[in-house]
């Protein structure tokens, strides 16, 4: 595991440096897509409650995909903001969640046919947010901050229905390891932030205490010289640290537009 993370760190340190030396010819083309949508959300955080809360979620996602001059390399940046409102099984308490995700991923494209491309990549991911329980007194909030390195893969398939060219994309992101905010089992935010006991609140994370997976599928449809994008994002986050279990699951259907920029 340490070796994989070492490679990923080298990738993120050395690739941007080498790219800077050729800055005048780095980017040729960029797609920017902005999507918004609604879906379902399920939240369980045993710091707040032993039970699963379910309800709705909404997400805004901005994605920038750049083709780099270096042949077959792509850079993707995704910023995603999602909020959720969920209820306990008795439907008398609400959790509100709000999260911001940022990921930076470099891909290498492997063409496996005229219409199909496979892009494996390595990513850095930053996530921050909170779950707020409307009824709890001194433990109303569970904050989340994660910094990860991970793997990503994109599969692209282009085809036509009659005369319309369509592009299907499936993307999966999975973090391999990193660090995250991990407060001890029964500590209060009063002790951590009012009294300053922050000695054991950061922990290393990997598959032994965290599993996160994002499945992202889109279809691009040309409409009157522009491109409509329909998307589906499934996000699973599971962590088990200091005997605090967190599970956040969302399924979001999104719609938005894609703009293409040519940078010469």
């Amino acid at each position: 595991m340490k070796r994989i993370i070492g490679y990923l760190l080298m990738c993120f340190i050395t690739y941007p440096l080498s790219a800077q030396f050729n800055s005048e010819e780095v980017q040729r083309e960029m797609n920017e897509g902005t999507l918004a949508g609604f879906g379902t959300s399920q939240v369980k955080d045993t710091y707040l409650s032993p039970f699963n809360y379910s309800g709705w979620g909404a997400r805004i996602l901005n994605e920038r995909m750049s083709l780099l001059r270096r042949m077959n390399f792509f850079r993707q940046q995704i910023i995603s903001v999602d909020i959720s409102s969920t209820q306990n099984p008795a439907e008398n308490v609400n959790d509100f969640g709000a999260f911001v995700d940022y990921s930076l991923t470099y891909y290498y494209r492997i063409r496996t046919g005229n219409n199909f491309s496979l892009l494996p990549g390595a990513s850095a991911h930053l996530m921050g947010g909170f779950i707020y329980n409307t009824r709890n007194g001194n433990n109303p909030l569970s904050a989340k901050v994660d910094i990860d390195l991970g793997l990503s893969v994109i599969m692209l398939y282009t085809f036509r229905i009659k005369k319309y060219p369509l592009t299907l994309r499936y993307q999966a992101d999975i973090p391999l390891g990193g660090i995250f905010f991990s407060p001890p089992y029964g500590i209060s935010y009063y002790e951590m932030f009012n009294e300053g006991n922050r000695s054991e609140i950061i922990a290393f994370n990997s598959f032994h205490n965290k599993l996160a997976l994002k499945n992202y599928a889109t279809v691009d449809i040309p409409v009157h010289g522009s491109t409509l994008r329909l998307g589906y994002l499934s996000s699973l986050y599971y962590s088990d640290t200091n005997q605090i279990d967190t599970r956040i699951l969302s399924n979001t259907f999104m719609i938005g537009w894609v703009k293409k920029f040519v940078l010469r």
Partner: peptide, 15 residues
């Protein structure tokens, strides 16, 4: 004792 809150399956609150 610094109090926390949790809940029961029927929605009752426990502190």
């Amino acid at each position: 004792g610094f109090p926390f809150t949790s809940e029961l399956p029927n929605g009752w609150r426990i502190r």
